[in-house]
Design a protein around this nucleic acid. Structure first.
Lengths: 212, 212
DNA sequence: CGCGGCATTGACTCATTTCAAAGGTGGTGG
DNA sequence: CCACCACCTTTGAAATGAGTCAATGCCGCG
């Protein structure tokens, strides 16, 4: 008999795996929330991935992890699998392999979505796109969403300053695009405008005319 | 006998696979350069991935591609594989499966690197990090690198304006961090400063003190 | 109660965008 | 062969959006 998987419970702030440490495992979130981030030489933190239940992470071809993963929510539960078995896993049971493969492609999709959000121009667009992304990934909530992360985390996820995040959310609220019943409790009112990233619905965007 | 792979040759500007079209294949670049991008509703283009020989792309769980892939260089050669066979492929020959799996994880790494470059603050840092990334991926060139893409492509890759790209390159040249022997021919002189993203090496960054 | 972390808001500065113009290059066709 | 055109590149000047610095309020917890 051989060890295949281990499940562990983390509290808010606890490290799941550390940048620079041996990449002996890959992981999936079972419950809770986690972030995967890189600390830059200048001390800034860039959140690369926001991990919700079902999300897979920790894949790398290197011997060491290039990023740190940290639990964000109390009671975050993560299952880890020995990396050495990944090859065998893919070679043997084709149904499990299929599933893991899909999860990896999902991770690819998450990163692409993140990239597209970061590629937006204004802070309004970024925050708006972030809210829509979160709502989509938290599908199941009926009315309103509960932000899984703090303003600071949003800032580091979008690579903008905390003040700008806060200001933008206030702005979106004043303009009636969202409702804020609490710092974490948000309800999307005007999804269209949010997707379009309307800095202001007036003053027509010249691009929109040029490209239909 | 069954069709497994097809190789095709594309000229600069030709589309390899189109956003919204059936995702029946996945691809690898054999020779040349390609980009994978998304056209936003407002007409802007975001380059998601820069594809060099050996790079794999086109993986998705959706029935349609979410992005368009376009050849950038004349004589770009791409091999495509039917998606339906991917499962069998991974299930059967474990050595090929291993290789494809590594390529997918490489694609993951490319996206993460891209994300980190985009997460930089100033245009100087972004362009500098981009140049270093390109140099790394083009490893093999001895002295200097030949940019595989235009200023416009760099702009859409970094989500900054063309003018800023051009200005920044001029600035880096004037400050002696790089040499520009032609629009595409670049030589990195001061790699340290480029990595640090020195807007100016003076005026110490407070962060650097706080975090060692 | 007081502390630490989180959130909000204001004022100022400045980098980047935007608008505008001009030079360079390669390809195509007359 | 040359002219023209489309595209790429560079630079300038003005406008503005986001970062930075600073202060305050909020809340949970020891």
């Amino acid at each position: 008999m051989q060890l295949v998987a281990e499940t562990a419970r983390y509290r808010r702030g606890e490290i799941i795996c550390h940048q620079g440490h041996a990449a002996d495992f890959w992981y999936t979130v079972v419950r809770g929330v986690a972030t995967r981030y890189v600390i830059r030489p200048d001390g800034r933190r860039q959140i690369i991935d926001l991990l919700l239940p079902g999300d897979i992470f920790g894949f790398t071809l290197w011997r060491e992890h290039g990023s740190t993963s940290e639990a964000i929510a109390e009671e975050t539960i993560v299952t880890r699998y020995p990396r050495c078995r990944t090859g065998q896993l893919l070679g043997s049971q084709s149904d499990v392999a299929q599933s893991v493969c899909e999860d990896v492609i999902n991770a690819l999709g998450r990163l692409e979505d993140h990239l597209l959000v970061m590629g937006r121009i204004t802070a309004c667009e970024k925050v708006g796109a972030f809210l829509i992304e979160i709502e989509r990934r938290l599908a199941g909530q009926q009315a309103g969403i509960m932000l899984p992360i703090s303003r600071y985390d949003i800032a580091d996820y979008l690579a903008i300053s905390v003040e700008t995040v806060s200001r933008t959310l206030s702005d979106l609220r004043h303009r009636g695009l969202i409702q804020l019943t609490g710092p974490r409790a948000i309800k999307i009112v005007d999804r269209e405008a949010l997707e379009a990233g309307d800095g202001e619905s007036s003053r027509t965007n010249p691009w929109r005319r040029a490209f239909q």
